[in-house]
Design a protein around this nucleic acid. Structure first.
Lengths: 131, 131
DNA sequence: TGATTATATGAGCAGATGTTCATATATTGT
DNA sequence: ACAATATATGAACATCTGCTCATATAATCA
């Protein structure tokens, strides 16, 4: 692009890794950049919310917040296949929001995170406000 | 399946809409079913969390929680194209978590939801606990 | 009016996601 | 040991997501 030749050189130092972007409010951007959490943190937090971003998983968490249940009970409750529920439980386990204990052939799952309950209630509040 | 012919009929009435599922703890399932929020509610809440389940959107929300910024500032801050940022802002707008105001050619965005801040902090707490 | 700038949006595409189906594993009862 | 039962998991597949690129819209300035 020809415009690159016209732009003064000292402006190129503003962006850390990129030099094509226009910055209108340089001070604001620099101030916010300092206050921002590290990208790894925001990524981890986003991953946590991703766990709760699926209707099936959300319903599983709601159910397990009310009682300890086994896989086939959950499947019956949600009207889904036991396989589908088991796959989702695997994701919830990996995120450490549920715990499980085996009793013979049956594996009981329960909510294992204080935050999930509170976070759900905030989500519900937002939903009611927006509608 | 042959097993269907053997299973007693009165068990088929247990599940509301499905009849293939095994239920081990009938009372627990029935009790939880009564306490469960409506599927539309859990779906809406899951949709709200879906908005925050992407690293880019999460970083945008973090930034807008600290200052009112325009699209190209956000793009520079995140090291992303203005188009990509604009697409994500559209999603955040639809979810009503950000507000925007126009000033000439520039459109300023800001956080427009009390819950997002609190919910983010809870997510961060969970992340720090789990690691 | 025409050129420039800031933002928005549609199409297209690669990668992620959630379900089903088949199969594996683990435990119990005969 | 063998059949039955509860759960877990891999492969396959259709759908969804987030980006890029091209283009449209909107506002400013010469």
């Amino acid at each position: 692009m020809v415009s690159d030749l016209i732009r003064p050189d000292h402006l190129a130092a503003e962006a850390d890794d990129c030099c094509e972007t226009t910055v209108i409010h340089e001070e604001a951007v620099l101030a916010v950049r300092e206050q921002m959490p590290a990208p790894e943190v925001t990524r981890a937090v986003a991953d946590f919310f991703r766990v709760m971003s699926d209707p099936t998983r959300m319903r599983i968490l709601c159910a397990l917040g009310r009682a300890e249940l086994c896989v086939c009970d959950l499947a019956a409750l949600l009207g889904m296949s036991e396989s589908a529920v088991s796959h989702q439980l695997r994701i919830l386990r990996a995120a450490r929001v549920v715990r499980n204990r085996r009793e013979g052939r049956i594996v009981y799952y329960a909510l294992d995170d204080q935050h999930v309950r509170t976070v759900y209630e905030m989500g519900e509040e937002h939903v009611l406000e927006v509608l």
